[in-house]
Structure formats: structure tokens, C-alpha cells
Amino acid sequence: MIELKGISKKFGDTQAVNQVSFKVAEKETLVLLGTSGCGKTTTLKMINRLIEPDAGRVMINGEAITNQDPDMLRKGIGYVMQNIGLFPHYTIAENIALVPKLLKWDKEKIKNRTQELIQKLHLPESTLTMIPHELSGGQQQRVGLARALVTDPSVLLMDEPFGALDNVTRASIQKEFKALEELKRKTIVMVTHDVQEAFELADRICLMDKGEVVQIGTPKELLYQPVNDFAKKFLASQRLALEFKVVNIQDIWSYLPKEILKDGGSKSADLSIWEAMELLRNNDRSELLVTGNNKESKLINFEQLTKGFNQFQNGQVHE
């Protein structure tokens, strides 16, 4: 668990971060979202003391981080950065083994853990003896992730981890990332300026502007209960796509046609509207069977889905 209390930081005359407070629950992913220069990266770096705050306190698992030696603290926190920052003079294996070596793990343990990680991250074994610039950007970022995960730290900080990748690679790595079992056990704070990415990966989002927290909440809360104009405008341009992603079948259950009695081959109603649409289009089927929380199933087509979604939207606006 991570807790920030009234964190502030000034660079010269610029107030980079002003009175930021939030809590990240265990195994939760919090995304710091905002434009460039909003203070999100500075906030992140104050969690592992890459930057020391002028005021405020940071607690990790109930202990103030200032009580620990900064180097020891950092060894216990995974860190993934936009520019990856692999050591160009080390092989991939050496890059991954960096922190374990600092912690004086024995060779066998390091080797086993490295093997385990490159399999999970779909890196070919042959890359281990290569040096970073022989790898593609996507592969490098996986190595960066492996390096952060190798000691299985409970806390992971990620600074625009997919920022340097092209759109196609980014989408596929995001998907893998989401599916990675190891990440689900971690308390993660991630920084991004990409709204889609934030909505894709976050349990909760912390929207920041000019060094201050604008709103903290689930993606759905940000979309449907924005606290001010800034929050509303920030999401405006991609609103529809975001809504398709945060609203699921269960949300619009009451607007869909009557239940039918049919078993087998059914999808969960946790499916987002977006995913349901993709299934309907890609698989060339006209209808999709979904099962709601009450174990009842409904058979829906594209038209019914959009109609139900629109009705749900209208209901939200009236609230």
C-alpha cells in the first residue's frame, strides 16, 4: 500500500507538485493522468526518492520512505521508464540480473528467475546474450519490465512505459501487460498522458493539472461524474470510445431484450460494449449470447447493443 500525504515540490520558481495526496490500495493499479508538465512524473519519482519532496510524506506499507536508505528503498521497488534505460554495455541477461546481483542472489536463482520471466514476457531465449540495441523497441520494453519484476517487488512504478512504442506494438504489449499474472499481484502507480491507455489499464485514475490533483476515481466515475470543466474537457475528444470501454453489458442489462433460456457458448456480461462490438463484427456473427450476474442469458445483435447503450447513456445524463 502506498500513501502520499500533502506532497509538494518546487523547481526554481515553478510549483511542479502542490499538495498531492492519494492512497493506492494493495494490488491496485493507479494511473496518474495529465498533460505534459502537470507534475505526474515528478509525483511518481518522489515515491522512490529519485526526487525528494519539499513537503509532505510518502508511506509505503505503513512505513515512511524517509526512514529507509534510498538505495535500499529503490532496490525494493520496480521501476519502468519510457526510455527504458537499459544499460547499453550489458547483455540482456546482465540487464535483467542487475538488481539481483546488487542483492547478492546466487547464480542459480538469478538464472531460474530470468528464464521464468523471459518466458512470461515472450522473449526468445537467444536475446539473453544480445545487447540492448540489437533488440526491437517492443522487446527492449519487455526487458525493461523484466528488469523491474525480477526481484518480484510488491510495488511497481511505471513512467510512461509504452510511450516510446509505435501504436501497433503498444496495443499488443498493453494487452499482454494486462494479462500478465505477475502484475495482478502488485501495487502499481503508472504515469501516462494517453487517456485510452489510462482507461485500459487503471483500476483508478488520478487526473492531474498544474501540479494538483483534479479528480481521483474509477474510469467510470471520471467519465460520468467529472468534478469540473477541466475533467470533462480532458476526456471530451475520445468520450464515445472511452464509454464503449468502461460500460459493460451488465450496466445496460435492463435495456436489452428479454432473457432466453439457452445454455453453452455464452459470454460473461462483464464484457465491455467495445469488446462485444468487436466480437459481433470480427466473428461475422449476427448474434451474441451473454450471461448476466443473475445467471440468465440474453441473445443480442449489434442493433440491440447500440440501442441499449444509447438508452443507458440517456439515463446517465438525467442523473
Binding site: N48, L50, D71, M72, L73, R74, K75, G76, Y79, M81, N83, I84, G85, L86, F87, P88, L98, V99, L102, R147
Partner: peptide, 12 residues
């Protein structure tokens, strides 16, 4: 970034 990574990994 390489230097920052080194620091962030906890190198003295």
C-alpha cells in the same frame, strides 16, 4: 535515462 535507470534500480 541510463543514469536515472541506474539510480532507480538502487545502485549506489
Amino acid at each position: 535515462h541510463v543514469k536515472e535507470a541506474a539510480r532507480a534500480m538502487g545502485m549506489s
